[in-house]
Design a binder for these strands. Structure first.
Lengths: 191, 191
DNA sequence: TTCGGGGTAGACAGATTGGTCTACTTGGCT
DNA sequence: AGCCAAGTAGACCAATCTGTCTACCCCGAA
């Protein structure tokens, strides 16, 4: 019954399913069941609401994501678990995240393309946080160098899988990235 | 002076810079300099205009992209050239493609998330065409199997690089994917 | 020479947008 | 008991949205 959280939940669902510009304030109000005055009491504008939605999704996603990493053994198994997580997400086995419709942050950047836009920057921040989680595990690998490179590479594999899964409906995209990581492990003895 | 092409050019520029829902028909008309009647003579709706824009961008991008592949030696060099092309794109050395703002097809799918939507399907088709160009080169490699897997992997590396470059403004994303491809070559002797 | 297709400018319609505001209610703290 | 913050419903505003329509123009083919 948190009157600030209600429109955030509703707005996320509608934004994620239909896009941000395509969803009007009135629809959010109707479906969240709060009054217009209440919404504008908590948020000064649609844009501020969006920022709160990004904040919320960031938190939910990170919590869910880090759960997979922590359940696995630190190091390589944890890195592999990243792609197991993605696989669950793409195949709708992650209830917390709602029906897969791509990455909300990638989608938001598509609508607010300019990197100077606040929403865009908030999305970049989310990706940086994910990168930090990855780095923590990469740093545990028995490598002498190349931690930063490997971290960024894994994140890039993750983005590629998300896009492939969303646009083509390719539900095996996560497993493909996982196999690529394995191939890397075998080839270079970096891990 | 092609009155059908003019609004396509303008609409692409505006859609790409600002998003599709964020751009109104009237703005397209004003900036393309044609009359409303003319637009609705050629296109029955904004959605039909969008489909024509996707068609147009598909053609321009494929032409530009395949140029890089054809200039390189067939096989591995051509595959490396893919990432050289991306690098030029991200760093705005590809004039035909306009200032880099991510992939227009990824961006469009973000706004029309449902895979059953015509615009979304047109985007998937574009990606499939790119995949075909990649496959042609992969098929020339001295591998006994795994062509399909490698083709899809390379496409996924490409999507990852595009997203990373757009969201983080990471202009080295293409080179990172290129290095990963090289690492794969060394490790598995698939090429 | 007439006729029609493609063009122009822009009024217009009806719906919807984000956001403000009035009038009223409810519930908890002092 | 009194008060105020937070809530409700929804009228209202100006702007904007997509799409239609009128009225007129130009030019090439029959």
């Amino acid at each position: 019954m948190d009157k600030r959280q209600q429109p955030i939940n509703t707005a996320f669902r509608l934004f994620y399913q239909n896009g941000i510009h395509a969803v009007g304030i009135n629809q959010i109000l109707k479906e969240s069941g709060i009054a217009k005055k209440t919404l504008y009491h908590h948020f000064t504008s649609k844009e501020q609401l969006l920022l709160a939605v990004l904040e919320y999704r960031d938190q939910v996603f990170l919590e869910w994501f880090s759960g997979y990493i922590q359940k696995a053994e630190p190091g390589l198994p944890a890195l592999e678990a990243i792609f197991d997580a993605l696989d669950d997400w793409f195949n709708n086995r992650a209830e917390e995240l709602m029906d897969f419709q791509g990455c909300f942050f990638i989608n938001t950047c598509a609508e607010f393309g300019d990197i100077s836009h606040q929403a865009h920057q908030r999305c970049a921040q989310h990706k940086k946080r994910i990168e930090e989680l990855v780095r923590e595990q990469v740093d545990r690998l028995p490598m002498t160098s190349g931690h930063q490179e490997l971290t960024e590479t894994i994140c890039q594999l993750k983005e590629g899988a998300i896009v492939q899964a969303h646009i083509q409906g390719d539900l095996g995209a996560a497993k493909r990235s996982r196999r690529l990581l394995k191939a890397l492990q075998v080839s270079l003895d970096i891990m």
